[in-house]
Each structure stands twice: as structure tokens, then as C-alpha cells.
Design a protein around this nucleic acid. Structure first.
Lengths: 119, 119
DNA sequence: CTAAAACTTGACGTTGACGTCAAAGGCAAG
DNA sequence: CTTGCCTTTGACGTCAACGTCAAGTTTTAG
């Protein structure tokens, strides 16, 4: 399929797809006229990329993880990279949880001033 | 105190403090010569701002929350804003947790190919 | 009083993940 | 063959949270 179809099927812009290619996250064949050609699996791959972006990973980080997905890496190395990244995510979750706690504290304060409990 | 002291005491750059003021997160009195003057409480306030930034909140969002902290808002409205923001954080935590799950799945896959269990 | 340190505003630089033209070529339909 | 939509590369625009000069003023130390 060509870039437009992949874009709509994966729910992203064509600009994003070209950007992913530029950053080494996504490859494509080229037709004789130079147009990008994608296989079916590309849809899934783009969705995975999207989810990783949604999880706050940078394109650089994702680029470092793709060889794991593709199996172009010794399993040991792949595991190491993935685990490092998972630890990063754990750290972020911890930070967010802490922030949530601070917010909750402020909410409780408001409730106190207002003279009734919060849900 | 002046901006330099506040900066070192709160652990941020003077540039950051001026930026916070520009964005409405932090106020200051001015000396006759135009230099910024801060009260003691500013230290705490800057630290709170820092923590909110650390929790991935934007300056815009934080600006929307400051009236709650300052009590310049009806407690009901304050509570509403804070709760909305807390829900946002919950959503982000959920996304990160999902991403963590996907990564863990990939890790398991690597382990399987490699023929031995993961920690 | 003078030099150094701190402060002022203004403005351009940075990084990331694209958005948004622009100019030009490609491709299926009538 | 000619619309008209799709695609190509190139390049500038954007937004956030500051960093980093620059040039001039103020405060402080000696």
C-alpha cells in the first residue's frame, strides 16, 4: 500500500510516517517512480510506534527499541534495552504518583477550608 | 530577597524565575530601582511549581491551579480544577502502565526466543 | 569612589514531533 | 489527453521551558 492508505489505516498523518522513516523507526520499499510502498504489517508497527510515543518515549528511544521488536539483536542485548526502558517508565510513574499525591493534599486543604469532606 | 537568592534557595535558574513570572506562576514586588523582591514563602512556592513541572504539567495548567493554592477561588471551583487535573494525571499513569505492559510483553518474547525465563 | 557582582529587558537559540505550504511529478478515470 | 487526487522532497513554522548572550543599571565590597 502507499503512504496515504497506511496513514488513514494507522490513524496518523503522512507527515508523521515520513518523519518516522527519517528517524529510522519505519522502513519502506520504493516503487519504480519513487513512491513509498508498505506491507500489511506496517499498520501494526505504526500503531506500536504510536503507543510508545503515547508513553512519552522519544523517537530516539523508540529507534533504540525497534531492533528488539525486529529481532535484529542478541536477545540478551534486547532484554537489557527493554528492561532499562521499563525502569524509566517506572520512574515516570513514580513521579506522576507523587504529583498526584501532592494534588490530593491540596484538594484536601480546599475541602478543609470549605468545611466539608472530599470524595 | 532578590532573584539570585531565591534561585539558589529554590534550586532553579534566575531565567526560570523570570519565566515563571512571565507565565503568571509567580509574582514579585519591585524595589524603587526596579529589582524583583520576593518574600520567604516564594521559596516554597517555587518548589511546588517545580514539582508540578516534574509531574509533566504545563505552565498553562499550573497557572490554572495557582489560584487554588492561593485561595483566590471559590473552594468549589478550586476543588473542581484540582480534581480535573488529578484525573488527567491518572490517565497519564494509566497510559504509562499500559506502555509498561507492552514492553514487558516484548521482554517476555525475547526471553522465549532465547529459551530461558526473565526476571 | 571604583570595580565586581547581581540585576534589568530584549531577543535569538534549542529540542522534539510533527503542521503546513510550495513546486513538481505520478496515476487512474473519462 | 486532461483533470484531479496522491505522492515526492525541501524547507520554514510551532510550542514549551528555558539557555545564552548583549548592553545597560544597581548594589555591594573594599
Amino acid at each position: 500500500m502507499r503512504i496515504g492508505e497506511l496513514a488513514t489505516r494507522a490513524g496518523v498523518s503522512t507527515r508523521a510516517l515520513r518523519y518516522y522513516e527519517e528517524r529510522g523507526l519505519l522502513e519502506s520499499e520504493r516503487s519504480s517512480a519513487g513512491q513509498r510502498q508498505y506491507a500489511e504489517e506496517a499498520v501494526e508497527r505504526v500503531q506500536l510506534i504510536q503507543q510508545l510515543f503515547a508513553a512519552n518515549l522519544s523517537s530516539r528511544t523508540i529507534a533504540g527499541l525497534m531492533p528488539c521488536v525486529d529481532g535484529d539483536l542478541s536477545p540478551a542485548e534486547a532484554q537489557a534495552r527493554l528492561t532499562r526502558e521499563r525502569d524509566q517508565i517506572d520512574a515516570q510513574i513514580a513521579e506522576l504518583t507523587a504529583a498526584r499525591g501532592r494534588l490530593t493534599a491540596v484538594i484536601a486543604l480546599c475541602a478543609k477550608e470549605y468545611g466539608r469532606p472530599v470524595t
